[in-house]
Design a binder for these strands. Sequence first.
DNA 1: CCTCTTTCGTTGGTGACGCCAACATTGGTA
DNA 2: TACCAATGTTGGCGTCACCAACGAAAGAGG
Lengths: 146, 146
Amino acid sequence: MEETPARLTARPSWLLTQVAVHAHRLASDSFGEVGARGYHYRILAALDEFGVASQAEIGRRCSMDRSDVVAAINELAAQGFVERTPDPGDRRRNMVSLTKAGDQQLRRMDRALDKVQDDLLGPLPAEDRQTLTRLLTRLLTHHQRG
Amino acid sequence: MEETPARLTARPSWLLTQVAVHAHRLASDSFGEVGARGYHYRILAALDEFGVASQAEIGRRCSMDRSDVVAAINELAAQGFVERTPDPGDRRRNMVSLTKAGDQQLRRMDRALDKVQDDLLGPLPAEDRQTLTRLLTRLLTHHQRG
DNA sequence: CCTCTTTCGTTGGTGACGCCAACATTGGTA
DNA sequence: TACCAATGTTGGCGTCACCAACGAAAGAGG
């Protein structure tokens, strides 16, 4: 690998986006092995943690656009991992629920993702991992408001 | 904003990719104001720091695919920011060089990017910024080999 | 010298994500 | 009742990362 311009390596935005590229590739490869993508994991995770929800709620919780939620849920429903039921109390909404198969798929992806964290954080000792997590969490919560 | 699944917020890969989304948006918006994209900045930076180079070299230095270098240099050349000259010593290669206008464009993007860093790191004190940079650098160099 | 492999530029795709505009349906509100 | 807001859906776009294939040219090994 040839030398990278210092203008890039000196900037946090570059480091962040480039490390994110590796993180995304690792996660993407793992998800691919079970025929899924990142969007699918987000939705399954939200359903498991908060229970039945409308598509709009899911989108807000997972930082996804409404239209992307539609597509991802179409795919999840086609695989039998979620079910779409019209909400009797509000006929605009769909109530999306997790199926048993969906729960199993979520667990598979959980295991895959745990390995990804180790690959991603590779050389970092536990203390540094904690520090990194803390700093990133602070940044993320900051940017989710302003 | 509704609550995000703990399965996501607890994982470094999620934090990293999500913060990277914000970083990318900030940079992308700034670059857009001068009619450019991230790929353009990478190339201009490499040319400024290492001088004339072939497209393949540029790609390796900036972590870009050869085909993406072609497209980006087409655009930069159309705007007069770089020049493509056949290499007399190796007729497969193009020698890409930075023009005066390209140098000015690079400086514009530099200033824009500096503001981005501040927006991105917002709430972090200088010490934490340094720590974050150090940790991310370690991760990036690690993943650029294995 | 003649193969075989490698590199280079180029073309033409693909996929994941993030995002936006528009529309009809339905709820809530003034 | 009239107006505004939210929902699901369709269709599209931009950025970035990546891949396969090709011809031209260079390099390596016989």
